[in-house]
Design a protein around this nucleic acid. Structure first.
Length: 275
DNA sequence: TTCCAGGAGCATC
DNA sequence: GATGCTCATGGA
């Protein structure tokens, strides 16, 4: 059992259900069971502490995954505002996860013009069909398949996933990464704008998907991904037009824009933008 | 039946 | 660079 003390800034439901990740499910007892970095785990939030029972990974891996070095008291104070404070209260236990870059890349390709339940279903199918088995707690789980495991597949191999038009994008991503045309380790070192450009060389990755990969897979907390929900919120809550969104977000939310985005997204998806 | 979902590619202007 | 159409699939 690994314990991470967050000083009160963790809630498993908020973190796993806020829309940033797709491989965690709630168990009967309130714990969450899922897979990260090739390890299966059971995670419980208790008094702001993260209790982790995992098939592997060790403390360093899980501290990195949960962003243990992020000071959420400081972040919340810095981005707080009249509009944002209720959102921060509502999703106060959210932690932005540092997810595996490859898994994040493919997951957000799948997210395009899709809904969250179906995104989860397609990813689960991808893992069950092509990922390595993980035995944990008497059950079998599946790791996210490597680029190499996918690169050699054909479109008909991917057909059972029911991924629709995204299947060819998944293949293109795997082939570019496995073939060395895109280097994931170099992405980790690049400035965010260059990393986004590099990611957008992959079919199916545009600005929004690239931004999600930067935020959820590369820990670039200043990145504020803008999807249909966010544009709706900016318009109805902040009265900001789509054409002014980039400037407004940069000037308003600053270096922790990614956290602000997630508090807004979670709050207004759960509660609606209209009273 | 029609509309929509954590968008992006492509043609066209 | 902006606009409009299209892309699979499944649930509401």
């Amino acid at each position: 059992m690994i314990t991470i003390d967050t000083g009160g800034h963790f809630d498993a439901s908020h973190t796993f259900l806020c829309g940033q990740c797709f491989r965690w499910d709630e168990a009967e007892d309130g714990a969450f069971v899922g897979i990260a970095g090739g390890y299966a785990a059971r995670v419980l939030g208790q008094d702001g502490k993260i209790l982790i029972d995992a098939s592997g990974g060790g403390e360093n891996f899980w501290r990195r995954y949960f962003g243990a070095d992020c000071d959420y008291a400081k972040i919340k104070a810095e981005i707080g505002s009249e509009i944002l404070n209720p959102c921060i209260d509502f999703g106060s236990g959210i932690r932005i996860l540092r997810q595996d870059i490859w898994e994040t890349l493919v997951s957000y390709i799948i997210s395009a013009n899709n809904n969250i339940p179906r995104i989860k279903k397609i990813i689960a199918s991808l893992c069950e069909n092509f990922g390595e088995k993980i035995d944990f707690g008497g059950k079998t789980y599946y790791a996210f398949p490597t680029p190499e495991a996918i690169a050699g597949l054909s479109l008909s191999d991917l057909a059972p996933l029911r991924a629709g038009f995204r299947d060819k994008y998944i293949l293109d991503a795997a082939q570019k990464v496995a073939g060395g045309e895109i280097s994931l380790s170099e992405l980790e070192e690049m400035p965010s704008d260059l990393a986004a450009q590099e990611l957008m060389r992959i079919k199916g990755i545009g600005k929004k998907v690239a931004d999600c990969i930067l935020l959820f897979g590369l820990g670039r907390y200043e990145i504020f991904p803008k999807d249909v929900w966010i544009y709706r919120i900016l318009n109805e809550v902040y009265s900001v037009d789509k054409s002014d969104a980039d400037d407004f977000v940069r000037d308003t939310f600053g270096q922790y824009g990614g956290m602000a985005q997630q508090y807004l997204y979670y709050y207004y998806r759960e509660n609606g933008t209209k009273e």
